[in-house]
Amino acid sequence: MPAVLVTHADEPLGRRIVKTLFHDERIERVFALGAGAAPRSFDRFLAGSPPRVAYARIDLAKHRPMADFFHSARFREAEIDTVVHVPSHGPSGALASRQHHAGPLVSGVPSRTAEARLVLQHSLDARSVSSLIVIGSAFVYRLAPGNANRLSEASELDLDPNVPAEIRSWIDCDMVFHAEVGNHRARVVLLRVPTVVASGGFVYLNPALSGPSGLRLRPLGFDPMCAVVAEQDVAQAVLAAVHGGTSGVYNVAGTEHLPLSVLGRWTRRPTVPVPSSVLRAASFAARILREPQLRASVEGAHLRYGFSLDTRRAERDLGFRPGYRVGLGRAGDGRVQLEASPV
């Protein structure tokens, strides 16, 4: 039975993945890593004797702590054979201002890319690890005019040097792992996911809507369609990849598509259409202030052109099918917000 290491388990998507793995009886144990303290929702997972879930606090972007962890007795005893890397996707709400993913750490390399390199290096070095599963972003693709270009795994990546640094880091992260897909030492599975939606109106991995709730800007006269996927479906895709024997790149997406304006409104991030000159000024300010997330939210083709994902390969090789639908629900306070409900 596999023992799984999950990175960034303190962030929303990581929490969901740990929870899904915990409830799967075919998983022997889960080792969760996070930059912060263990989430309170893990309390009941950590309570067993012996607990099926262990948690360690570690900065994934720094070489020394990573090397210490992967060479520790705790890691060896856990007999980890699968590593699930969930790149930092920026917590929403009050945690958003945390320093964790803000600036470059390693001589100009964004923390997300540095983490990817370190996780890859140590996973391949570790003798017990035979599978590496990574969640990537579907915003790495080059977007062109067309209201729903269907993008397959073979579609072109956006290698334009003017891509905002936030998206660029996703592309770098993607390429770091993509280069190891044919590795004979371990099987590498890269899951590219679009905008991830969680019940309660939370949204992750969309550069235009990342960060805390509040107003967003979008170009006047454009309202691109956004492919969405429920976070439960992402966790199910990870589970399918853990148990599957294949390696490769897979698109993972749900069945629904929403305009950016509607998605923003339903997730408490209403978008305000502004002229391009205002967006350019905001982008310039973001560069001056070194705010990569702000820059990605006001600049880039994803603000103009939508896309949808071809998920046939994931259906065929992983057996993945979206089990959740994204729609409107009414919260306890009467507010209408985005919800994911089982099909």
């Binding site: 729903a148 994204v326 729609g327």
Partner: peptide
């Protein structure tokens, strides 16, 4: 239009 959302994938 299929699904919960009132849009199809083309918008």
């Amino acid at each position: 239009v299929d699904g919960e959302a009132p849009y199809d994938r083309f918008g």
